[in-house]
Nucleic acid binder design. Structure first.
Ligand SMILES: [Mn+2]
Ligand SMILES: [Mn+2]
Ligand SMILES: [Zn+2]
Ligand SMILES: [Zn+2]
Lengths: 150, 150
DNA sequence: TCGTATATTGCGACTCCCTGTCAATTTGAA
DNA sequence: TTCAAATTGACAGGGAGTCGCAATATACGA
């Protein structure tokens, strides 16, 4: 049993919720890939594997995973929310190419430090933060299609 | 005629669109207040003034104002998008209190500088960026209700 | 292991924020 | 003033996500 299962089960127990077949299948599928995904795509992947988990349960379980700290829900201003792993993926923020849609990750300790300063100034207790930079990626600027890059 | 009207008309002309009664009324109402607002609230304000502008036109005009650079559309992960002025309001980012919902603004030159560095490293051409810090504000931490402040 | 209280599930209906359609109206260039 | 083209209001439609509920699964204690 992976660390994520352990964490999830511990979270469910701690909060008086049940460890169900559907929840385990969703968690398993979430951790089969390591990219940014949306709820519908995850549901489709489960369908393909004939997991027999409903769309509603996918949404409900993603919410649990978010609250348990296993995944992070991200809202990039698009219709659908995206999700990404937290466990084993250190905190980072995103560069989003408005041309090809790809998402690049970055992290910079200086930013976190400044954020702490700002919170201190405002007497603000930070729970989470997000930072997104929208623009054109190197490939798109070069007129290259993303497919040509390996 | 305020600077915002001038800018808007110039934008409309430049992009081959028409300066209409409805668009002017929406712009006027947008600039009557200087806080964060959503489309529905703006529509209600117009209704109260019997402006006779439809909800659809409010949405369509907000989109134009966003594209013209007069307002900024913000997605804070809530159902509704928020909008805020750009003209006369220097760039800033937001602290959002998850307890009372109030939004506080901050700006820090160091952050912008780091963002430029990161873009340079990735060969990324930045168009815009947003940064949100979620947490609890000073008042909420002190158990004070926001109404008591002022 | 079994029985039972309680949580969860799948289903589809539903909500909510917009967005698209289209006939009627307005705009502005000539 | 004329008139093609853009815009508008009304409302249907879309799409992501949520809710209610009867059927089912889970877990806890006997
Ligand atoms: Mn990421
Ligand atoms: Mn602001
Ligand atoms: Zn790109
Ligand atoms: Zn607060």
């Amino acid at each position: 049993m992976g660390k994520e299962e352990k964490t999830f089960i511990e979270f469910l127990r701690r909060t008086g919720q049940k460890v169900t077949r559907a929840r385990c299948l969703v968690l398993e599928e979430v951790y089969r890939h390591h990219d940014h995904f949306d709820a519908e795509a995850l549901y489709q992947r489960l369908e393909k594997r004939r997991a027999g988990v409903s769309r509603a349960t996918v949404y409900r379980t993603l919410s649990l995973l978010d609250r348990s700290g296993l995944v992070r829900k991200m809202d990039l201003g698009e219709a659908r929310s995206l999700y990404e792993h937290v466990l084993g993926h250190p905190h980072h923020d995103h560069l989003i190419c408005v041309s090809c849609g790809r998402i690049f990750e970055f992290e910079h300790p200086g930013i976190e430090e400044i954020q702490n300063q700002i919170c201190a100034q405002h007497g603000f207790e930070m729970h989470s933060h997000t930072q997104q930079i929208f623009g054109r990626c190197r490939d798109c600027r070069a007129g290259r299609s993303p497919a040509e890059t390996s």
